Simulated scan of single mutants.
Amino acid sequence: MSATRRESAPLHVAGPSPRAFERPLPWTESIWSHLHAARASGRLAQGLLIFGPNGLGKRVLARALAQSLLCPTPNVQGLACGRCADCRLLAAGSHPDLIAVGPDPESKSGEIPIDAVRQFAERESLTPSRAPYKVALIDPADRLNQAAANALLKTLEEPTEHSLLCLIAERIGRLPATIRSRCLLIQVPIPDEAAALSWLASREPRPDWPLRLRLAHGAPLRALADSADDTWMEQRVQCLRDFLEIARGRADPVAVVGRWNEIDTGRILDWLAGVMVDLLRLGVCATPPRLDHPDRRDELLALAQGLDLAAGHRFLKRILEARALGERNLNQQLLLESLAIDWARITSRHH
């Protein structure tokens, strides 16, 4: 079973890959306006920490800002012109004043090591080569190891003039408080559901966007990326059916987990967490305003009516803990078997 699929991250220390010019997504336009105004008035912080769940457009926002800062002739909205010599270098992925810092692609840990930060610091100490700024995108910043975080702190404390350090993270709690305190925190919000559905429909008309957006926890880019392959939707049906069959006493927990070998473990834990949240919602209100799995409402309502809510809360906590442990490359099959057996015990009085 594979680890949870993540948004793509940059290489160890490198120039940027070739990319199209970015525009901030509709739900980040107010953030963009504030950044543009701060830049225009000379008040743009030199350390930014852009954070929020996967699939909300953090990286789009960060890249648009980097492109804007490196373009000498941005338009009235502050976006890169896309035509000048600097923009041509950006488009080719070879602009000398844009640095990408990320995990070593040869490492299994997925961490950003101290050597990456040291290499970056050496380049960051130089003045801009040709653009108004030198910009570093550190992504994902929440994967800095302790030594790398300490090394980065020194650069954040004394940044060179006309430089910008932009950290991108999904779990800012993993970053030391000393780093967070030296950055301007920019939280990318989950958009209004109607606005997100409108944006998704503009990209590709399909009738199941409402369900897909719920399964993506309201993150439009995640929903859009997931729509490229429907295999996981079929796997979800199997996983949820098996999970409910365990609760009904009709399936062996260990045998069920054996059938999940081809399913991404991160997705399984995500679906199970969503199911438990829905059960807890339905346990206190038969018509909650929101469900993560609205297409399974009737089945979940029937199960919720006899569920011990306190036990359900404890089990949800176990799932969330298992999701965190899953990133540490533990034996994921044993992890899932333990959860499935615990679920059978919790629901044994239903049958």
Rank of each mutant, 00 (worst) to 15 (best):
T347V: 13
A223V: 01
L279P: 08
N329Y: 15
A136R: 00
A45Q: 04
L330M: 12
L156T: 03
L126G: 06
L144H: 11
R180K: 08
F243L: 05
L48S: 05
A136D: 13
D115E: 13
K154E: 09
S202I: 15
I172N: 01
Q333Y: 03
I172W: 09
E234N: 11
A340P: 07
A225W: 10
A80Y: 03
I112L: 05
A194Q: 13
R345Q: 15
V277R: 08
F51V: 07
E337D: 05
W209S: 05
I268P: 06
L79C: 01
P113L: 05
L11C: 06
H351V: 15
F120N: 12
D270Q: 09
V256I: 06
H350C: 04
A148R: 07
T127M: 14
W271L: 05
A151M: 11
E29T: 14
S125G: 14
L320M: 12
E22K: 15
P191G: 07
D270W: 15
V60Q: 06
F243A: 00
A219T: 10
C87I: 09
N54S: 12
V254T: 10
N54K: 08
S2A: 09
L44I: 02
V60A: 12
V275D: 07
T231D: 14
A91C: 13
S109E: 04
R241D: 02
A40W: 08
L335Y: 01
T4I: 08
P210I: 07
S125L: 09
D295H: 09
Q235V: 02
Q119E: 08
A20R: 14
G102Q: 11
K134F: 01
Q146M: 14
R143D: 13
P53V: 02
D292A: 12
E7L: 03
R212S: 03
P288Y: 04
S129M: 07
G312H: 11
A195E: 15
R23D: 12
R88F: 07
L221D: 10
G266C: 11
R345G: 07
N329Q: 13
N329K: 12
G274W: 00
P103T: 10
T4F: 12
G249Y: 06
G82F: 08
